[in-house]
Simulated assay, not measured.
Amino acid sequence: MKKVVTMGKFLLLVVAGLITVAPVFFLLGGSLMGDQELAELLAPAFSDSDGYAAWHWLPLYPTLRHYVQLCLDSPEYFQMFWNTMKITVGVLAGQIIVGIPGAWGLARYSFPGKRAVYLLYILLMLLPFQVTMLSEYLVLDRFHLLDTLWAVILPGAFSTFPVFLMYRFFCSIPEEMLEAARIDGAGEWKIFIKIGIPMGTSGILSALVLQCLECFSMIEQPMVFLKEKKLQPLSLYLPQLQKDHLGFTLCSCFVTMIPALLIFGMGQRYMEQGITEAAVKE
């Protein structure tokens, strides 16, 4: 009976996994189909024709034309790709410079109003962008940063969610270890560099991975703060593609997804540790 239950759980997990990755195979298969084949399969979904959209996972007439078009005849795609990379690198650099010391200070030092500051971080983390959009817009406009990549980078660099994740890891470092380092003559900066960062590596990496994935998928911030098309990231490029070029659209989506999949694969273990640690109540 126990083996039957175990096998049932295994099959259930396999089915759930296949359902989860089905969109990836949908994109891959569609990116290898010609426009005519895609039009025949998906015509009811994009027109008033009768019937239902159909799909088969393997293309009847495979072609790499869409990939060639994307790589050799789509300079706009690569311009927006580099905009995405600039935003991502800028946000991650800001989190390293600002977020890590901020999380360490909240976790390891006592000061008046510390609890209130921590609760404020949590509150700002829970607020959706629609709530803070106007205040961010006014601040960026005052500093003449609108319609520049800094308008997206700076709010992301000061995001509170990575600080919240790293805070939990820094709190788990034994105070006795820090006291022993102080007795040996180590200063606060040396303790932070030699003990805090190495022991909080899992939390730091999990926060950076999640922030990186968020940068690849953000839509509202660049839509509000960036008006010039040459500054927009890939997240705004894909919705602009037309249904008349379904194959190119699916190909663009699949290629855009590859960096995020690689980042997720490399940082999955750290993400799991960070989410688990953040779920522990203080």
Rank of each mutant, 00 (worst) to 15 (best):
G156F: 05
E76T: 12
G51N: 06
L60T: 15
F143N: 02
T63E: 05
P112Y: 08
H144I: 07
G113Y: 08
R108G: 07
E76M: 10
I96S: 10
L126T: 04
W55D: 06
I122D: 01
L123V: 15
Q79Y: 05
F158Y: 13
L64Q: 03
F158G: 09
L124V: 07
W57Q: 06
Y121K: 09
I153M: 01
H56R: 08
G51I: 08
I96N: 07
W104P: 04
P62A: 05
G156C: 06
P59A: 06
F81Y: 14
P75D: 00
R115F: 14
F129L: 05
L92P: 02
H56E: 08
V131W: 06
P128H: 00
W104R: 06
C71I: 15
I97V: 15
L119Y: 10
Q69H: 13
Q69A: 10
H56G: 05
Y67K: 01
T84N: 03
T84S: 10
M125A: 14
M80C: 14
G99D: 04
F158P: 02
S110F: 12
M85C: 07
W82K: 09
F81G: 07
A157F: 02
S159R: 07
V131L: 11
T88D: 12
S159H: 11
F111E: 13
C71K: 15
A151L: 02
G105L: 13
T63A: 03
S159V: 05
L127E: 04
Q130N: 12
A54D: 14
F111L: 10
E76F: 07
A107L: 03
